[in-house]
Every structure is written in structure tokens, then in C-alpha cells.
Nucleic acid binder design. Structure first.
Lengths: 229, 229
DNA sequence: ACCAGTATTTTGTCTGGACTTGACATCGCA
DNA sequence: TGCGATGTCAAGTCCAGACAAAATACTGGT
């Protein structure tokens, strides 16, 4: 009964959580482990590599692997498409386009998207509902210099997120989360009082080193992002 | 010059971002890819596995691998220890203990930590400063039933986070992020106006299926959590 | 037409062997 | 003493081949 890489992983993790292998201490070399578990070094290597990826151990050539002093805690949050998020909770999804315009980019946006003066952008404001109550407010700016198709696209039936995903298959993103206070308009749309604290997600999507779209998503009052590991 | 798994990964990712392989389309089998790249199947497998881990492709036995329709966007946020976060920015760190008490767990906490009536907890309130200005407010509750050592520990010089890390080597956690409004006390400590929106992180740390500590971290006004990928 | 069992395909994992790379140690020479 | 060349070790990567497992396709019987 040879050990799988999964067995090895959980066993090592167990030794660490139980305190048998203390933070900072050296873990036996791959060759040793391979022998004790009765498996090949490649198998041990995979187990150790994944533990290192997860921030639990630290590996260095020549010196060996050791338990991290401060286990690097990193949380993985899924950033879902609103519609999927809502539908996965068994709620009905509704989308509403509030405003749609094509304008010259305001200065703050020009700086953010690295646009030239006079460059035009498509500006969209929309709302996403779950079971009829407001769920998320979307304030979206699309760079028309990079995505001229966006000028003629129709966003009255479905949101810009889904359209954009069909246009830009995969891209690099910068996501930022902060708290903000509801202004008059937001309060009305999200059905809360002005000044209420709201969770906001900002996202800039880059493609070929150029920012193609910037969006500010304001979540419904009380919204939480949760993850466990 | 054979292709490394890294080469293969970037090449495939390139084909996807350039739109050569569209979302939903089938990617050649590992055996095919191994031949086209002139490497072993194991090498291709590793490249594909990592792409799958990153949420870019979807793999299924027998049916093969395909580009995800909705690239699973997941953000990895580092959850740093405050002190490290501050010191990495080249700022000076200061810690202050505001309140320390051992009390019977209030009802809301009892529910959260699954405690029996009368069980006692250590309650700590502290502040973390960066370059002299308030950075983070920490409201920490430690389960004394599971961690009796916490009753006699001294938190006047350094924060409970660091002490806890020495006690619980590795554990599973539930993290939740939300927006909250500053109350009178928070406003005073964090040097802002009451009602100001603040980003709050809540964390429950479990060990052996029992919640050992619950903490509510309220960040300074304007704080953002950022990540890019 | 339906169903159960079987074949096939594709990914998942493992093996034991090899070479590479980065980091450290040490030796020899100026 | 200082310093560069060389050695050594452990992790990093790769290979070819093998079997396992899951999911689909197929096939024959009812």
C-alpha cells in the first residue's frame, strides 16, 4: 500500500498542526521522506511543492525545507460574475440599465486608463437584482480606443460584464476592495440610507498592457465576502 | 531544445488570450500536445494542471480539457500580520493594548465559538500604529476552554496575533470582509469621524474542529486591499 | 426502445531514473 | 588574508513507461 502524494501531504500537514514539526524546524529531505513513505521522490516532491505553494513550508535548494515561522496566510476569494453569484443562491436574477452614454473621458479616468485628451469612453451604470431586491450597483467605463465595438453594443438586455467576457477571453486584472459611504444616488438605487457603509470592489482589466475597462462595483448593504481554508 | 512546462503554460495561455482557442473550445489531448511540444506527457500534464488550478481551463477525464467559458476569476489576497504589513512599507510599528479582561462569553460570542454557558474568554482590544498614526483596531476574543494558557499570557508588549501563532502552528480559518461604520469609540481610536465607512476583516480560527479565537479587525479609513493577476 | 454490462478514451497518478540549477562550503593560490 | 575556482548537496525539472479512475460510447440482449 504505497502512499499517494495526497497521503504524504496530509501526513506532513498533520505533523505540523500537531506541533511535532515546529515552525522554523527543518523537514527531512525528499529522499528521506521518499524512503519513509515508500514512494518515489517525485511523489514526495509534489506533496512538498503543494505545501510550499500554500505557504505552509518554505523550500530552499541546498538548505532543505522548513516549516514557515509565520505561515503565510493567503485567502483566495472567488470574484464571481454577479449573475452566477445570484443564481447559485437559487435567487432570480434581474438586470437593469440605468444610464448609457459615450463621452470624452473625464480627467480622473484618463489618468487611470492612460488615455489621451479627447479619447472617448462608453460609460454605463446598471443595477443587478437578486429576487427583486438590489444586489449590486455597477459603474462601468469602457475604453473605446481599444474596444470600438463597445460603442454599438446593446447593453439593455444583459450586462456589460458578460459582453466583455465574450470580447476579451482572458486578461490580467487589478482588483481592489474598500469601504465607501452611500451617496444620495447610491442610497436610492441600493435601497439604503445616505452615508451607510458599503463594500466596494474596483477592477481594472488590462489587455496587452493597456487598460481596456474600469469598473466600480458597489455591493448591497451588509454584503460580505467570505472564504475559508 | 525541449519545451519546459513553463514554456508550454505560457504558450497555451497565449493561445487563449489571443483568442486562438476560444472559451468553451476543446484543447488537444495531452498526448497530442506532448508531441507538438516535443516533451513528455507528464510535462504537458503539469502545465495543464496548473492552468486548471488557476481557473483558466477545465479538465474532465474522457472528455478532455476545454477553455473555461467564464474564466473563474479568483483573487488571492495576502492576509498579512499587521506588523509585517506596516514594516514592509518602511514604517515604524507601534502596538498599544487598550483593554484586557477575562469574562464569561457574551451570547453572540457563545454562538459563534460554540461555547457552553459560563465558559470564559479572554477579551483584548488593541491598536496597531504605522508611523504613529492608527492603522488597525483589533478586537480579539480567545476561547479559554481550548487555550487556557491565554489567561496568563502578557499582551502588553506585543499583540495577540503573534502570541497565537506561537501556540497554534497551523489551522483552518474563515475570513470575511465587510464594510462597517465607525462608532464613537472606533472613530476616536482610528482618528476619523463617527459614521465613516471602514473596511473590516473578521476571522475565526479553528483547530480540531473547534473555534479557538475570533477577531474583528477594523482598518484605518481609506484602507484598501489590492491584488493583481 | 430500453437497459446493463463492456470497451475505449482521456486525464490522474506513480515509478525510478536522470540531468539542471542555485546556494553554500571549501580549498588553493596570490 | 582575500578571493575566485571547484565541489557538493538539495530542490527543480524532466522523461518514458505504467496502471488507475472516471466518463463516455458502444453493444447485445430483452
Amino acid at each position: 500500500m504505497p502512499a499517494t502524494y495526497r497521503d504524504i501531504k496530509t501526513d506532513i500537514l498533520g505533523k505540523i498542526t500537531r506541533g511535532e514539526w515546529k515552525p522554523g524546524s527543518l523537514i527531512p529531505g525528499e529522499l528521506d521522506l521518499a524512503e519513509t513513505y515508500g514512494s518515489a521522490r517525485a511523489t514526495v516532491n509534489r506533496a512538498m511543492r503543494e505545501l510550499a505553494d500554500e505557504g505552509i513550508i518554505e523550500r530552499k535548494r541546498k538548505s532543505g525545507s522548513r516549516v514557515r515561522l509565520t505561515p503565510l496566510r493567503q485567502a483566495r476569494f472567488d470574484i464571481p460574475v454577479v449573475r452566477h453569484e445570484i443564481e447559485e443562491q437559487g435567487r432570480s436574477y434581474r438586470y437593469a440599465l440605468i444610464r448609457s452614454e459615450v463621452i470624452a473621458a473625464p480627467d480622473w479616468l484618463r489618468a487611470r486608463l492612460a488615455l489621451a485628451p479627447g479619447d472617448r469612453v462608453r460609460h454605463l451604470v446598471c443595477l443587478h437584482f437578486g429576487d427583486g431586491t438590489p444586489w449590486q450597483h455597477e459603474d462601468r467605463w469602457i475604453n473605446l480606443t481599444l474596444l470600438p465595438q463597445a460603442e454599438s453594443a446593446d447593453f439593455s438586455a444583459s450586462g456589460p460584464t458578460e459582453w466583455l467576457m465574450s470580447q476579451i477571453p482572458f486578461s490580467s486584472v487589478e482588483i481592489s476592495i474598500a469601504a465607501t459611504a452611500a451617496d444620495e444616488v447610491l442610497a436610492q438605487h441600493l435601497d439604503c440610507a445616505p452615508g451607510d457603509p458599503l463594500l466596494m470592489t474596483e477592477r481594472s482589466t488590462r489587455w496587452n498592457d493597456q487598460t481596456v475597462t474600469y469598473v466600480r462595483l458597489v455591493h448591497r448593504p451588509g454584503h460580505r465576502m467570505t472564504t475559508r481554508y
